[in-house]
Computed example of a mutant assay.
Amino acid sequence: MYQTLIQLFLIARVVCPTGGAIQGPVYDDTPLPEFLNPSWMSGLPDSSLLSEVTMPGTHNTMAVFGGALAECQSWSLGSQLRAGVRFLDVRVRHVKGNLTIHHGVSYQRAHFGHVLQGVVDFLDEYPSETVLMRVKEELSETYNIYGAVVSYVHRYASWDMLWHSRLMPTVGQARGKLIILQDFHGPDLGMRYGSLDIADDWKVPSLLQVPKKWQSVHKHLELAPVGNMAQMFLTYTSGTGVFAYPSAVAQRINAQLYNYLTGKTGKDHRFGVIIMDYPAAPIIQMIIDFN
């Protein structure tokens, strides 16, 4: 009975959140980052494999509309990139050759061309950087988005801007490149998403399951420094459920992530890509500082 009352209280906290926007060291749902770090990769050695780099990323990068169940970010794509985010998680709905951006049923008022143009603009301004982009089909079930993706690349970006290999590039080879992590069928367009070492236990039915989610994140972060340095590690800290909105999970998990990383400060660790909902500029900077 006591546990049931606690769960109902936690559910009420999520369904009826109090207060306005938050901009703290671990969680930020305000419109703009506290500070920017747009060219942090310029200080990395060209000879390092990209898989050896520790970098921040965002889950469902473009999910800024649709209410509490659908929204995962509050910053625009340009603001995320300039804040230091280097991994993008992009979900496209395929309808008659068109690729609109969705999070489930929630249309994000953008199409894939807007995402590509945003990356092109950023890399033109900061050619020392690279951008990783997971591309996945969402909502539609055509299982055939390759041709549409290629068409959009030619229209809104440049074929030469892509990294056309399954092999892991060095930092020098990756500079100025968009690396598509191909989470769809078809000929090679970039690196295969499935070839990476991924932890993405996104199902968090209620806030009572947040500790279990953190255990999954913690386990994978502990494996990354001792894992194969030629293989990229991706750790998703994001999670959601009917009684655990992305924002509520992010506030709790991001805080635990910050405490964990604080304990590792000063150590020579590779954590790979750490992918978050509603990250704040200080925790992004903390992740970058492990390089």
Rank of each mutant, 00 (worst) to 15 (best):
H94R: 00
R82P: 08
L81Q: 03
V150H: 13
F87T: 05
Y126Q: 11
Y107I: 08
S76W: 12
P127I: 06
S128L: 12
G147A: 15
K136Q: 13
S76T: 12
D121A: 13
W159D: 15
E138W: 00
L81D: 07
H94M: 00
R155N: 11
H94C: 00
D121V: 02
E141K: 02
H154C: 10
H103V: 01
A83L: 01
S151A: 15
E141S: 06
K136P: 03
R134N: 05
V149I: 13
G78S: 14
L81K: 02
A148W: 06
Y146M: 14
V149R: 06
Y107D: 12
I101R: 02
V105M: 13
R134P: 03
D89I: 00
K136V: 07
R109A: 12
L139V: 10
I101N: 03
G118P: 03
V90K: 03
S79R: 09
Y143T: 07
V115F: 11
K136I: 04
H94D: 00
V95S: 11
R109D: 15
G78N: 14
F122M: 08
K96N: 15
N144C: 08
V119H: 01
H111N: 14
S79F: 07
H94G: 00
V135T: 02
I101D: 04
L77V: 04
S106V: 03
H94Q: 01
V149N: 08
L81T: 01
E125L: 11
I145L: 12
W75E: 04
K96V: 13
F112Q: 00
L88D: 07
L81I: 04
E137Q: 02
S128R: 11
R134S: 07
W159G: 09
S106G: 11
R93W: 07
